[in-house]
Amino acid sequence: MLPDYEKFFISPEWKSIRVNTLKIDKEDLLQKIDFEVKQIEWYEHGLWAKGEISKTLEYYMGYYHIQEAGSMIPPLFLPLEEDKKSVVIDACAAPGSKTTQMAMMMENKGVIIANDVNIKRIRALVHNVQKAGAMNVVITNQDARRFDLNSQADYVLLDAPCTASGKIAKIESIVKKWNYARIKAMARKQKKLVEGAYKVLKKDGIMVYSTCSIEPEENEEVIDFAVKNFNLEPEKFKIKGLKTRNGIKKWNGKEYEGADKCVRVWPQDNQTEGFFICRLRKY
């Protein structure tokens, strides 16, 4: 452990919110709220917010969702605003920050199958979907390694369970839980999840794989596995105004295929949690 890791913690003063455009326009929301906000440079519906944000009428009404800024990135890797009527599978969806974000990108058109294996977390997902007014969402409770959906999707978001080491700058307990065996076990699970997600993706469809972990084993190594075992081709993708870096090509004596097309969002670059995102097309 770093002896001076406290120095890396991000100030908790500024939180982030996402305007729920299913219920209100950003301009109208700005008229109503009285806490301080700043625009998130790289996402028009994202705002930095300072003050009491969880005890307002606007939050109660579902006009905005409190969402870590980094968590707003993965859905933006899918072209849902241009392809609203598509079928999307959110393979690991609870508690639904990204599900509800995608529902608003699609303006409640098309369908999102929001799945999670954990029934307790599904309850939070149900609550958030209802509060957001996300009518195009169908919630399923399956193990995404063995999907049984009778359908295939144009897009799959695989926001995989992870060791969450990208949150290390905000949540101290992550530092304490960090250990290598956990990382290896998580990586094995993530590879199985990629296989499950691959099977429910249509040919020419896009899968976005993301984690809030910074470990190469949970990220580039999973993409390397996907590229070598399935008909998946990583694609470069950029979000205007967001500072990103390429994936890590070599780690612990291993070389990872596709790493140059992966995206890493480091905590210090945009004041978000650390995130890893890769967009893969099925051929």
Binding site: K85, K109, G110, V111, I113, I122, V126, V129, Q130, G133, A134, M135, N136, V137, V138, I139, T140, N141, Q142, D148, L149, N150, S151
Partner: peptide, 18 residues
């Protein structure tokens, strides 16, 4: 665009719409 009939028969379908 949500086919309620189709999804009601999907295994462990927990919710459709709101």
């Amino acid at each position: 665009n949500v086919s309620t009939e189709f999804f009601s028969s999907v295994r462990n379908c927990y919710r459709i719409g709101i």
